[in-house]
Nucleic acid binder design. Structure first.
Lengths: 207, 207
DNA sequence: TCAAAAATCCCCGACAACGGGTATTACACA
DNA sequence: TGTGTAATACCCGTTGTCGGGGATTTTTGA
């Protein structure tokens, strides 16, 4: 018997999945949640074997929830369920300890397959996902190399501050902040005008 | 017997709804689509009594599809099915001729109720929708709505493309893309260098 | 059919962001 | 004690973005 908990902010989709799984003999749904907080509660109470979770959710996002759950209950397997096949999200989800990744525009049958595969110790990644890409992986390992000032500036960039605003906040010269920007761009292997803001916004859940 | 066509770009959700409706005696699904073009095809071929459609879809969006269908087949009832309860979208959908409006974070049972109510000549609007405040509604409908090209460009901005790259992709002049950018900034009340990218990244997950 | 909205193109100036350098001070740690 | 890294600050030049205009064509809605 595979016990499952589902977290997904669209109740209609939760209902659809529940309906499908209800007729499966070897699968039992222990609970459903509409946000990350509810998911953590349910898992702590009932400890399912498999967790199926959306990435974008209110209160606590799927990546953070996965990281917390995998730390508390290493035996619990997590399958991510997302609308997007963005590499960053997938990469982060894998880093957080997910055993599978599904896309919402795949058939519902995929969900069933994924739960069964992951529930019996395997991994399941949607066919339309292409992983590896050494540049990205390298990027994520190098991100820890950022220094204290650099991290602070990156955070401020993520909050929408411009270079001159950051300089005022930190009581340093504009040229210093720009230097830090450039160093970060070099360290992270980025290029182009908006890339650092992009990076800051996408990684801002990481602190 | 109520005949139905469903359009929704997330196949998993289509499957869930289909699964639910399959066990209903008086409802029959004539076809499902993953984008607006497919929906138009199906409706023209099979002419269902009720159409359940997502608003955000590839190729042809739900609002446009509704407008076209209501013009060609005035007897066909349309129910909108959306993730967001933004007044502009609801207002536009009603203006296009929709008889109902559902939110994806409502239970699946609501879908059933809505189809039955609309299929028998009624209207069904989600309880958590509040449409009063005519002044505000009027204001937002004529102000905040982005056009087709603008939305496409916003999407590309969200994918990290620069203005010149977008111009190449769309086979238009750089100046045109810049004009669209500026119009969007004005429409959305933004200001500053990175704000549009910021907006694009934040709204990217919301449709 | 006809006006409104959208889409296309161009101009200018201002300035922030980036790429590529150089240089000084300070502090850690081996 | 020296080497390394971080943090500070400045230079030049290029490109992208934004604010503010104007103008034409095409599409669409009423």
């Amino acid at each position: 018997m595979i016990t499952v908990a589902i977290a997904e902010d669209h109740q209609s989709l939760v209902d659809g999945i529940s309906l499908l799984l209800k007729y499966e003999e070897d699968i039992s749904i222990l609970g459903t949640a509409n946000d990350g907080e509810q998911l953590l509660e349910i898992v702590r109470l009932k400890q399912p074997k498999v967790v199926l979770t959306d990435i974008k959710m209110p209160k606590v996002d799927g990546i953070t929830a996965t990281r917390i759950l995998r730390k508390e209950f290493p035996h619990i397997k997590v399958i991510a369920f997302s609308m997007f096949d963005q590499e960053e999200a997938i990469q982060q989800m894998i880093a957080a300890g997910a055993s599978g990744y599904l896309l919402k525009n795949s058939p519902l049958e995929e969900v069933l397959k994924a739960i069964k595969t992951v529930g019996t110790g395997g991994t399941y990644f949607d066919a339309s996902i292409n992983l590896e890409d050494p540049a990205k992986t390298q990027k994520s390992t190098e991100k820890t190399v950022l220094s204290k000032s650099e991290r602070e500036i990156l955070r401020l960039i993520g909050e929408g501050k411009t270079t001159s605003e950051i300089a005022n906040i930190r009581f340093t010269a504009v040229s210093t902040v720009e230097k830090h920007r450039k160093n970060m761009i070099r360290k992270l292997g980025l290029s182009g005008k908006g890339e650092l803001l992009r990076y800051a916004l996408e990684k801002k859940y990481d602190f």
